[in-house]
Nucleic acid binder design. Sequence first.
DNA 1: ATTAATAGCATACGATCGTTCGCTAACGAT
DNA 2: ATCGTTAGCGAACGATCGTATGCTATTAAT
Lengths: 208, 208
Amino acid sequence: MSPRASASAAAETRSGIIDAAVRQASLEGLESVTIGRLAGSLEMSKAGVIGPFGTKERIQLAALESAIEIFRRKVWSPASEAEPGLSRLEAITEAWLDYLTGEVFPGGCFLTGAAAEFDGRPGEVRDAVDRTLRLWEGVLEHEAEVAVEKGELPAETDPGQIAFEIHAIAQGVNQARQLRDDPRARERGATAFRRILNADGAVSPSSR
Amino acid sequence: MSPRASASAAAETRSGIIDAAVRQASLEGLESVTIGRLAGSLEMSKAGVIGPFGTKERIQLAALESAIEIFRRKVWSPASEAEPGLSRLEAITEAWLDYLTGEVFPGGCFLTGAAAEFDGRPGEVRDAVDRTLRLWEGVLEHEAEVAVEKGELPAETDPGQIAFEIHAIAQGVNQARQLRDDPRARERGATAFRRILNADGAVSPSSR
DNA sequence: ATTAATAGCATACGATCGTTCGCTAACGAT
DNA sequence: ATCGTTAGCGAACGATCGTATGCTATTAAT
């Protein structure tokens, strides 16, 4: 059924298309990615672009998946090496700020953009974005839970609230950086994160 | 030069088009507003739709302006009756939560959506969004300043930081509500606002 | 050397995009 | 009653959209 020999020739084409789609979507949104413009920027025919995917929506889904993978590599991977709990949360927020204020995507956080773009439309893209953000906020909540269990955050802390606030601040940093090119965006985010994670009355001030 | 007699016949048509554009844009974004679909939903011809504006971009700008006016009426107006300073900030956050979790726009906060949609494109729409959000954050910052002067917030408070965090939380509430239909969105936002405005060590606990 | 499979191209399709053009009704002023 | 003004329509334009179809090279296996 599967001629599994060399998947490299076509696979490179495929990932080239995805990369171009991610770049285009990061700036103008996933809906504005166009087969014709992809073909132009890749110097291919339109048929050659849509061929490996079959449908524009599947190109969008592949681009989204690729952007998620980049997020995971840039934010989760470095933080996953920290101790679970508060220090991992701190590592996440730091890596997240790097990601948001760095040059990862030319047009800002891909997920945030896709969330805003598709929150009013039904479809697979919207569902995928929803699933991903739910999962990520679940990760944040879990780490906050661990931090509470370890006594690194006050016992009465609501982990879901921590997750919500961290995620909201990240959205604020992204907007400040992308729309206003605010150079203080990173510092503002860092301060807010500190305020969220150093809740007054933390039990053991022996952080680390 | 101006036959200023009755501007009502055409003006009603114009505002009907704008209303339809706002509705459409709130769900699918300003770029996805289409002359043809506007004409369909209004049972008019395409020429009749674009006529009063001349250009699609001017329809977008008019829709944006209308949405800004709605925001002002729903959020700023009620809050402007409160005392400047902390109580006005509290009134703003409360009205903002009403606005975000109510039925004002079918597709969530128009400004936030437009900001995400246009932060990667040049043009007048982007500039207008930028100007508006800057202005609004300036209002928040000013009220925080007054609150500091009045001793309602600690003297070392950074008003810009307060404005940034409030705005970020609003973005988080909007996403939680629109993408995830999270019923706790409002409560999460309210809790976060409380945390931001009740900074530990507030000087005069005689709030009002 | 021949064959089978595959990558990608050229072309074309119907739909829809934003915009333009001329026309027709209706209306207000004289 | 006539005439200018104007709101809005019908139709058409070139461009571009997503997608389908067949073909031509190239490659891998026999």
